[in-house]
Computed example of a mutant assay.
Amino acid sequence: MYYYTDGDLSNFWLANGYERSETPYGMAIAIRDLPGLSRAICDVLTRKNSNLTDAESRYLRQAMLLLQPTLEAIAAYSDGNEQVTNSIDAMSGVERMAHFVMTETKHGWEAKVSEVDLSEHEDCEEVT
């Protein structure tokens, strides 16, 4: 399992969906479906029951610039969609930590919430 810290995220791990290879510059990680992973992380964050951390808010803001469906989210917010409104309003809330393990399946990336702080486990390696 790899500790995924893109965008300063500190609560995501990849169970699969990546390949590790040695290069002349050290270990390299290649994620097979990076756009799909980014969409899945955004989906997890917008459905999160607790307030977003600062890093999670930044990740969503950066992803909004890259992912086209964001315009639909903005429209839903403007129209008063409760789930979207709650997610966007949570961006300015108190930081709370949930830990997510991302698994690539034949249907795309899926997330599971972990009750355990995986960063303390020996079998997790950091990916930046």
Rank of each mutant, 00 (worst) to 15 (best):
A15P: 10
N16G: 11
G17F: 05
G17N: 09
Y18N: 02
R20M: 06
R20N: 05
S21M: 07
P24I: 06
P24E: 09
P24L: 05
P24G: 06
Y25T: 12
G26R: 03
G26Q: 02
M27S: 04
M27E: 07
M27T: 09
A28C: 13
A28L: 12
A28S: 13
A28E: 15
I29V: 13
A30I: 05
I31T: 10
I31M: 10
I31Y: 11
I31K: 13
R32V: 14
D33A: 05
D33R: 08
D33L: 06
D33T: 06
L34Y: 13
L34P: 10
L34W: 11
L34I: 12
L34E: 15
P35Q: 11
P35L: 09
P35V: 09
G36T: 07
G36P: 06
L37G: 09
L37K: 08
L37E: 10
L37Y: 08
L37D: 07
S38I: 15
A40Y: 02
A40P: 00
A40S: 03
A40F: 01
I41F: 07
C42Y: 01
C42I: 04
D43R: 00
D43W: 00
V44M: 01
V44Y: 00
L45G: 04
L45M: 08
T46H: 00
T46R: 00
R47L: 06
K48W: 02
K48M: 02
N49K: 11
N49G: 08
N49C: 05
N49Y: 03
S50T: 14
S50A: 14
S50W: 06
N51C: 13
N51H: 12
L52F: 07
L52A: 10
L52G: 06
T53W: 05
T53Y: 04
T53E: 06
D54N: 12
A55M: 12
E56R: 05
S57D: 10
S57C: 13
R58P: 04
Y59L: 03
L60Q: 01
R61M: 07
R61P: 00
Q62T: 12
Q62G: 10
A63H: 06
A63T: 07
M64N: 09
M64A: 11
M64W: 06
L66F: 12
L67R: 08
Q68A: 15
P69G: 05
P69L: 03
P69R: 03
P69T: 03
L71S: 15
L71Y: 14
E72L: 14
A73T: 13
A73D: 15
I74C: 08
I74W: 08
A75Q: 14
A75I: 13
A76F: 01
Y77E: 05
Y77W: 10
S78Q: 13
S78V: 09
S78M: 10
D79C: 05
G80E: 03
G80W: 05
N81P: 02
V84A: 03
V84S: 00
T85L: 03
T85Y: 00
S87E: 03
I88W: 02
I88F: 06
D89K: 12
D89Y: 12
A90V: 03
